[in-house]
Design a protein around this nucleic acid. Structure first.
Length: 479
RNA sequence: GGCGCUAUCGUCUAAGGGUUAGGACAGGGCCCUCUCAAGGCUCAGAUCGGGGUUCGAAUCCCCGUAGCGCUACCA
């Protein structure tokens, strides 16, 4: 049984790179009939925040790709400590009494740091004595650097990987305060939670050699690994919360009005493709086409459009969302639009009841012009409320010679016609235009402006029937 | 500095020895048309550089170069 995990640390909001990692894990596991676990890697107690955890959970839930289990790493701490002690006992780890010097920032200083001198040689007896005497220490893994070989594994994405023991540093397992490090906690949990495949960013590649070593020291088999290419910001650097801020926050996309499937589709295409020129993919289509070995090895740039606005995301993402918006069954779209309308106070319960059919029909007419859910509460406002602004160009259309008077005449006539359908409305408008000797466009565009406050939108005749006779006539007169 | 990963239109990508190097977004044009979209058609636009191997290289190898990652008692 395939079991994957997504392991965010709650030290910031969910960003687009994390979301993509989740999407790839999910697609891989589900396409293999496997399970998806969520593991909150909260070992760095000092940096964890409740707000961050909430942001991550909300963001993942919004993606609508459900997980099977959720675990908190902090709750598993005894297991981690136990593993560290086992490694210490077997000689695969040792105590390092060097005092903490903080981050080593001397990059470019020549030889890389691999271990602190003198510490590997301390005998077990002396080590135990100093520890019980209260001397602070960190527990490090003893990399068998005296051996000629190295760690080899076959990556699901990058294929054959190898690193010499001599190039792997003696990484920490336990901090001097007794807290497990990420390496220890993550590896031990992967084992205990029976994770079969670890799919994570390429920034973890160097860690993987350590984790394989660690697991081997524990006498356990390592899972399979797949390292995803990184997502780069427009400036070319790895996407990060710190550098790219709200621009890469998943909540930004949600607030802009992305459909979960539109957003997931966009993410799925960053570093992967079904190889047959299809791009607009529903979840089941992604599932059917997904192959982890088809994931690219090259980093992808996330575009933010030309401007610097948070709303100015990759135009292709918006396009993809629009494709889903107009291709998905209306019934599936409805709850999303409902949410958008609710947030603007435009939702009334009859839209789900007595006027449900009308609502669905209106969406069918409107959605080809929309790309984001938010468009329904802005550009479509006049269809759901009598309280709407008249845009500049629409105002200009109404201000043209005698247009307002003509619209009132039109209102009078439409009030009297027998059936109120598109053909009738068109006949009345064209007839009136002919009588008055003006171009039909004058009345058509004027009508749209009066009815919707906008210079653009669906066929003006259609707008009449969407709004219905009463509202249409009222708005013509009020223009 | 050390250790790695990578390199195709502006961007996302297809082609894993043989194609006029394909598609999509964005951009230009045309059609449709009451507007705006949608849709259809179309134009422009790329194999980082240099060496090999081969009848033949975007594809395999090497060297450069560039970008990115890692190089913590962060994850």
């Amino acid at each position: 049984m395939v079991r994957v995990r997504f392991a965010p640390s709650p030290t910031g909001f969910l960003h687009i790179g994390g979301a993509r990692t989740y999407v790839f894990n999910w697609l891989f596991a589900r396409s293999e009939g496997g399970q998806v676990l969520l593991r909150v890697d909260d070992t760095d107690v000092g940096r964890n925040t409740e707000a961050s955890l909430r942001s991550i959970m909300d963001g993942l839930a919004w993606l609508d790709l459900p997980w099977d289990e959720r675990h908190f790493q902090s709750e598993r701490r005894p297991l981690h400590v136990q593993a560290a002690e086992a490694l210490l006992a077997s000689g695969n780890a040792y105590r390092d009494f060097t005092k903490d010097v903080g981050p080593r920032e001397e990059v470019g200083a020549g030889t890389p740091w691999l271990y602190n001198p003198g510490m590997r040689e301390i005998t077990a007896e002396e080590s135990a004595r100093r520890a019980s005497a209260g001397e602070p220490f960190v527990v490090r893994f003893r990399v068998p650097r005296e051996l000629p070989g190295g760690v080899a594994f076959r990556d699901l994405v990058l294929r054959k990987q190898f690193r010499r023991y001599a190039d792997i540093e003696d990484f920490a397992l336990l901090r001097s305060n007794g807290q497990p490090t990420y390496h220890l906690a993550s590896s031990v949990d992967d084992r205990d939670l029976r994770i079969t495949h670890v799919i994570r960013g390429q920034d973890h590649l160097a860690n993987t050699f350590k984790h394989i070593l660690l697991l081997k020291g524990l006498g356990s088999a390592a899972p399979r690994f797949g390292h995803l290419p990184l997502l780069l910001g427009p400036d070319g650097s790895k996407l990060s919360k710190r550098r790219h801020g709200a621009l890469v926050s998943v909540s930004n996309y949600r607030e802009m009005g992305f459909l979960p499937v539109g957003f997931v589709n966009y993410l799925s295409l960053l570093g992967w493709s079904p190889k047959d020129n299809r791009e607009v993919l529903a979840i089941d289509a992604m599932l059917a086409a997904f192959r982890i070995e088809n994931v690219l090895r090259t980093n992808a740039t996330v575009r933010f459009g030309r401007g610097k606005q948070a709303s100015d995301v990759d135009p292709k993402a918006v396009w993809l969302n629009g494709q889903h918006l107009r291709k998905m069954p209306i019934e599936e779209l409805v709850p999303h639009v409902e949410g958008a309308l609710r947030s603007a106070g435009l939702w009334t319960d009859d839209l789900g009841g007595s006027r449900k059919e009308w609502f669905h029909a209106a969406l069918a007419d409107l959605r080809s012009r929309m790309n984001l859910l938010s468009d329904f509460r802005t550009r479509c406002r006049a269809y759901f409320s009598d309280d709407f602004d008249v845009q500049g160009k629409a105002r200009a259309n109404l201000a043209k010679d005698g247009v307002r008077a003509m619209l009132r005449t039109l209102a009078d006539r439409l009030e009297l016609v027998g059936t109120f359908d598109e053909a009738t409305v068109e006949a009345e408008i064209r007839g009136l235009a002919a009588e008055l000797g003006v171009k039909a466009g004058l009345l058509i565009n004027g009508s749209r402006a009066a009815l919707t406050g906008q210079p653009v939108g669906p066929s003006a005749f259609r707008v009449f029937t969407i709004l219905g006779r009463d509202r249409a006539v009222r708005r013509l007169r009020a223009a």
